[in-house]
């Protein structure tokens, strides 16, 4: 943008920003994802040490400890806030990795067809038959639970989702006129896929992305819950739910309840966000 932006242009930019802001405030899904992301980014700087002993074990929620303390006297509120950063990170990176691997593979399979496509389909069918959680559990148990391994495993079980999604979205485009035109113009296969086909399916993939971040968080929480996720005493929502399982039924319900609600709220938000993206694709934010 040049230095001498006309006032006219500036107002337009500002009003567009205003429109985006209004839209965010009006749509619960956007508003609540904004809050969750803000908590994950800023929250950890504002709360107590998630691993420290803060006096009094198993104290009920109070003005001092909003979510109470656990059996080691740790502040559950601080732990829930810190875990938000970890869970969101793992979810985002795992889902992004799955897109990066699954989307081009699916597009290529649909575009080229033939034996390559058939092979991809069979492999992803095998993966579909695989009990996801058992597969993830087995690999984590074999390679040892560490954050990079967890991300890889969660990404891996998400790849077939994008592969199939992209494949089915690209398939009807392969014989369309604009692809034919691009082919006649002598564009390479990679260019056709990147410039002409993938932009057309990206909206579908991004609506799915939000769902898959949610799913990734659920898998991470489940793995940690059964003791094969993050290492103790790392603050992670699923692991924290597990921490409280023995206390849950004997009066100290807050240890498990708050991290569990955090998972529920985050996953619910991401799922609604996906609906919102899908519905909003014909207008709203950034309308063309």
């Amino acid at each position: 943008m040049t230095a001498g932006t006309s006032p006219d242009h500036r107002t337009r930019t500002r009003s567009r920003l205003g429109r985006v802001a209004r839209q965010v405030l009006r749509t619960p899904a956007y508003l609540s994802i904004a809050i969750i992301v803000l908590v994950a980014l800023v929250g950890p700087f504002l709360v107590r040490d998630p691993l420290g002993f803060h006096g009094g074990t198993l104290t009920a929620p109070s003005a001092e400890f909003w979510f109470g303390t656990d059996q080691f006297g740790r502040d559950i509120f601080a732990r829930v806030v810190h875990a938000a950063r970890l869970d969101l990170w793992v979810g985002l990176i795992a889902a992004a990795l799955a897109v990066v691997v699954g989307m081009p593979l699916g597009a290529l399979g649909a575009y080229r067809g033939g034996a390559f496509d058939a092979l991809l389909l069979r492999v992803s069918e095998s993966f579909q038959a695989f009990p996801t959680l058992l597969l993830a559990l087995g690999i984590v148990a074999a390679l040892g639970p560490s954050i990079p391994i967890l991300i890889m495993v969660i990404a891996m079980v998400n790849v077939p989702v994008y592969l199939r999604l992209t494949r089915s979205a690209v398939k009807p485009l392969v014989d369309s006129d604009f692809v034919l035109a691009a082919r006649c113009a002598g564009k390479s296969q990679a260019t056709i896929l990147r410039r002409h086909i993938l932009p057309n399916v990206s909206e579908i993939v991004f609506a799915q992305f939000s769902v898959n971040v949610a799913w990734a968080i659920q898998i991470l929480a489940a793995l940690s819950f059964v003791g094969l996720g993050v290492k103790l005493p790392t603050a992670e929502w699923g692991a924290m739910v597990r921490d409280g399982i023995d206390y849950m039924y004997y009066g100290q319900w807050w240890i498990s309840l708050f991290p569990g609600l955090a998972i529920l709220a985050t996953v619910l938000t991401l799922n609604y966000l996906s609906d919102e993206i899908r519905h909003g694709q014909r207008g709203s934010i950034g309308s063309r």
Binding site: I263, L264, L268
Partner: peptide, 20 residues
Amino acid sequence: FGVSIPEFFLGMILLLVFFA
């Protein structure tokens, strides 16, 4: 709600309410 709540958490909540 059903799609978003982790199975293990829902089970624990049901136990908290109906058992404990």
